[in-house]
């Protein structure tokens, strides 16, 4: 019951804010909407019993990545004519609503019978402490320690590559 209430609140807010990202002309408005969308999406992750991932979502996405986006928007300092003027026409609302309704309907028709009726394996109920930092951390360090270490290499390469690319002219 509580899960249903929170799911609908978080889902509606996430979809509305994600639609704002796509429909807003001003990149700053889009970035702020995206922060909100990521935040409510982390609430959905909590409902899915993924506590560690929910914390990482807020820290990495809503924190670090979005600060990067906002910094780049500030550095580029887009003029008013670059952005165009803000307008929320009826066509935008119709277009956004049609994307949401059509995709939702198609996905529901395709996936509605994917799970066998009556037999639902809910790990959050059957597995005590599912999604805790301890469990996911052990899975990360026992089963996939090599990919985890390669991730640090990837991030180092990405930072060096970002500096090299941003210094040159393309």
């Amino acid at each position: 019951m509580t899960e249903s209430v929170f799911f609908w609140i978080f889902a509606v807010l996430t979809v509305l804010l994600a639609a704002q990202v796509v429909l807003r002309r001003n990149p700053v408005h889009a970035a702020v909407s995206l922060v909100g969308a990521f935040f409510f999406l982390s609430g959905i992750y909590l409902l899915l019993a993924a506590q560690l991932i929910a914390i990482l979502q807020v820290m990495v996405y809503a924190g670090a990545v979005m600060v990067l986006f906002v910094f780049v928007i500030m550095l580029l300092n887009l003029k008013e004519e670059e952005m165009g003027h803000e307008r929320l026409t009826a066509w935008k609302i119709i277009g956004g609503a049609s994307i949401v309704v059509t995709t939702g309907l198609i996905a529901y028709l395709a996936l509605g019978n994917a799970y066998p009726t009556g037999l639902l394996r809910d790990m959050a109920r059957t597995q005590p402490g599912f999604g805790s930092v301890k469990g996911v951390g052990q899975a990360l360090y026992i089963a996939s320690v090599l990919p985890f270490e390669v991730t640090s290499l990837l991030l180092t390469i990405a930072v060096v590559g970002a500096v090299v690319v941003a210094k040159g002219k393309i």
């Binding site: 990545v65 999604g131 996911v136 899975a139 990360l140 990837l154 970002a162």
Partner: peptide
């Protein structure tokens, strides 16, 4: 049982690298 959550962890890391580049 945590394969999905571990995959999400790596997706987050790759997404951060992708955003930077």
């Amino acid at each position: 049982i945590y394969a999905g959550q571990v995959a999400v962890f790596f997706v987050i890391a790759v997404a951060a690298a992708e955003a930077a580049v």
